[in-house]
Design a protein around this nucleic acid. Sequence first.
DNA 1: TTTCGGATTCACT
DNA 2: GTGAATCCGAAAT
Length: 205
Amino acid sequence: MSGRALPRSFFARDSRELATELLNKVLVRRVAGEPTLAARIVEVEAYRGADDAGSHAFRGRTPRNATMFGPAGHLYVYFTYGMHWCANVVAGEPGTASAVLLRAAAPVEGIDVMRARRLKGRPTKLRDRDLLSGPAKLCEAFGITGTLDGADLTRRTAAGDLRLLDDGTPPPAVPLVTRRIGLAAGKGDEHPWRFCVPGDPNLSR
DNA sequence: TTTCGGATTCACT
DNA sequence: GTGAATCCGAAAT
């Protein structure tokens, strides 16, 4: 997978704008001695700190959400439902606590590794389109856990190399926009801040 | 210190 | 379509 690594300036803007721009960008994970993993992002959600009841940062900074309050271009990883990890890209200026949840992607490279991680020995079959079609699925397939919370997406890190690349594919001219998934009624679910590549088979649910 | 519920997924009906 | 799995952060006590 080749392309231009996205610089810090790309991430340092409003999370809703960043969300639409992340569509069709390529997430790449390189770890020494392992096959490269690559996937095209097809579904994201924007979250904001102060005025977004659906955001982990709504009630202010805590040890858990500290990464969201830091500089853009870092990965905010959190654990939920007692078993799942989800990953966000931090947006905006430090202190705004905004981020973009990576919800689904299309597998591009390293598909066998992704499938093995997703199956975890289960006897079921998984189509390619089921490998990354949800925020926790994406993390499982990419091996993203809490140890990568705070990782800088614009630099090589000790944990390996996790980057976002622009391979020249533009975001969709007209993204599919819906309400965000999984939020309780009245807790930010009213905002239409989910953005998708229209018609993509790898979308969640 | 206890309680509550979650930015989900999967197996099963 | 429904329910179980399963842990932790944060609010409530």
